[in-house]
Design a protein around this nucleic acid. Structure first.
Lengths: 113, 113
DNA sequence: CAAAGATACATAAGAAACCAATGCATTTAC
DNA sequence: GTAAATGCATTGGTTTCTTATGTATCTTTG
């Protein structure tokens, strides 16, 4: 991650769950590109962070996988399970709560920032 | 930290620099209480995180220390150096930038969250 | 058509940052 | 007089991320 890497710590699962909540299925490389595009290159997920986290989400039962072949190339799609959908919402409100707490603590004015 | 501990990772230095920017001198225990109070108990700094971070800030030349005795009890005050003051502002705008990026990525509405 | 770059998966070793636990000592409140 | 609060600090372990590496296919460009 190029932009403020220390700040982003702990938010990766939240990002992944939200992306998968908005898109019925996505694969790893697609996720990296989508995040890069949506953040104007400010967040670039590395594979070393992405894949272990996706595997962890799968083991927690929050995502399911589905393999497709594009020619001979493997592509592994990830989708949210029902548990993943509710977890996604939990994570989002948790993050919103966190940001509001930090706004008070840091006296931030986010409208002009 | 009681509240969303994984999210708070990486924000501790920012919190400390901001508090010290607003208060000319503070000591460790005072910081933990102030943060607890300002966040309605949602963020409780642990000593294991706090003291190493304060020491790191001191070694980076961002804070200076000053020991006082209250009766026989030692109290170690921390203050921002000039470098610490500008670093504080950098960290704050970096965090604001980060939040705005995440708002886009997560499609957050922070007014009602 | 060869080479470079993009696409696509993945793991391993190490660093960074935090948490829980522990330790020591003084002061205050019941 | 003892429990809780005040006040400093370190240690060991875990989680999470970064950097580096590995394998393989497809596309573009000179």
């Amino acid at each position: 991650m190029i932009f403020s890497s220390e700040l982003i710590k702990g938010t990766l699962k939240t990002i992944l769950l939200k992306l998968l909540a908005d898109n019925s299925k996505m694969y790893g490389y697609e996720i990296t590109q989508k995040v890069k595009e949506m953040t104007a290159d400010r967040i670039q997920l590395t594979e070393g962070a992405l894949y272990p986290t996706l595997h962890a989400l799968e083991q927690e039962g929050l995502v399911t996988t589905q393999i497709e072949y594009i020619g001979k190339r493997v592509r592994k799609y990830y989708s949210l399970s029902p548990a993943g959908k509710s977890r996604s919402q939990e994570k989002l409100s948790e993050f919103a709560d966190f940001v509001n707490t930090m706004k008070i603590l840091l006296d931030l004015d986010l409208k002009t920032a």
